[in-house]
Design a protein around this nucleic acid. Sequence first.
RNA 1: AGGGGCGUCGCCAAGCGGUAAGGCACCGGAUUUUGAUUCCGGCAUUCACAGGUUCGAAUCCUGUCGCCCCUGCCA
Length: 562
Amino acid sequence: MNEPTVQMGPNFIRNLIEEDLATGKHDMIITRFPPEPNGYLHIGHAKSICLNFGLAAIFNGRCHLRFDDTNPVKEEQEYIDAIKTDIRWLGFDWGEHEYYASDYFETLYRYAVRLIDKGLAYVCDLTSDQIRSYRGSLTEPGRESPYRHRTVAENRQLLSEMRAGSYPDGSKVVRAKIDMASPNLNLRDPVLYRILHATHHRTADRWCIYPMYDFAHGQSDSIERISHSICTLEFEDHRPLYDWLCEALEIYHPQQIEFARLNLTYTVMSKRRLLELVTDQHVTGWDDPRMPTLSGMRRRGFPAAAVRAFCDRIGVGKSDSVIDMGVLEDCVREELDSCTPRAMAVLRPLKIVITNYPEGRSEEFTVPKHPKYPEMGSRTIPFSREIYIDSDDFKEDPPKKFFRLGPGREVRLRYGYIIRCDEVVKDPTTNEVVKLMCSYDPETAGGKLPEGRTKVKGIIHWVSVPHAIPVDICLYDRLFTEPNPTGVKDVDYRDHLNPNSLEVLTESYVEPGLQGAKVGDSFQFERLGYFCVDSHSPTSDKPIFNRIVSLRDTWAKLQGEG
RNA sequence: AGGGGCGUCGCCAAGCGGUAAGGCACCGGAUUUUGAUUCCGGCAUUCACAGGUUCGAAUCCUGUCGCCCCUGCCA
């Protein structure tokens, strides 16, 4: 396993743990990442994973992977497998420490019995609607259930009958006996167990009562002797309940610390919505390269190291925040720039005929795979009389500061000759530019500049027509047109879906050296961006390249302003 | 006065009584056979606001305002 070097700036959780270690409150720290196997992991989970595994690595502790699988109707083995794959991809290893809340069902049941014996829990026959109305509201206290004062013996009897399957779904629950007037709604006799005659993906039909999250999560942490239970802000209100439970049960009491969950612009982050995008087929699946899921980003070509760098860069705090997508993209570019071999590709081809280059002749240029790291080796690119250039590198009527090709203009072919556009050939009916007749200067090969010749400012990429490999290109853009798709009043987030989030180009070409590229291989197509071979390429011989991220483009930015 | 939390540059974020780190974005400029990369330089007299304590406050106290979360037999 590739053990990542963990980067983590100072943050309040790290400081707190440092203090706990310094004061001897703990000799070793144990954290955990506790996903529910009901969906795929997304970049928000990556933040939590990097935090929990990162902290464990920094302080020489350990981090458990625990599946909080207490709701059999929503959870599936498929998700467990996908989650494990994603965490390993991110570069983290939980070793032997793979746990399941369902492994603790028997212990949890004994805990429930213990509460009943202490008169701190009871079996309640109210319907869910009744429980809701008895709960009161934010501003009004609740009312006690008429079943609240059943005897210990009766409660024990009822609970064991519940477990034995004597009652139908929803007919009874067990509740903690805390305080129906508490200003904290979580303390108004919360439900601990419900009856669910459902087959669980791990315990099959052994149980027909299942613990609620609030009765499983904290105790699971306790059972695993988690020193620091790190979770997101919305569980802050639940902490008093976990405290109450640990005290009532007289069990080990982990310390819960809450941090703000990640939000990213131009995407959504809730599992519910991501699932909707998948089931409504707005995307092709959980691993659609436009999804903020780890599987989507992996397929898109984001390096795991970039995701880790991102998680470090955004920090950890308690204030609600929305991170600009640009931060993630910058991390991806930074990682890819140093490790990605360069290549030339033409996305929207425009043919050029070099009129003074002999017909039938061709030559090869040997150029570095990476201009800054010659140790990465070299590649050869063929040149011939006909080449493709990208159509936006030619403008019949060039705007100001456009230093690419235009009628009568000169431009340098990357790693090749300087050419001049002598003639523009158009389709007589559509008036579209179909071909450019150019001439080359044989004295300018490989960057050479003869004495007295003025330097050309523009350099463009190209591919030799007879040597070009046809490929399909997938251009991805942000999934939504709104920075905060769920934040616009009275508008469904799906109405902000970007209709142009995927553009498929089917007439693109790459240099012949990319012939043997394998799924997942990444390249920088010079002047265009980073691309990788898609894992869903058809078995046909025409590969698909996903654009991972574009290069920074100050020219495009200037254009946008104009 | 229902409870809990948060408010430091456009977006994140250090800082924890001694006089505002860093990143992204943005703006200059240098180098460049990728308008990329790299490199330099600029970018909060001010920390939601108002009072108070102090020689000294983003940091302590009081009050005000704004935003987020909580009424699943989901997690």
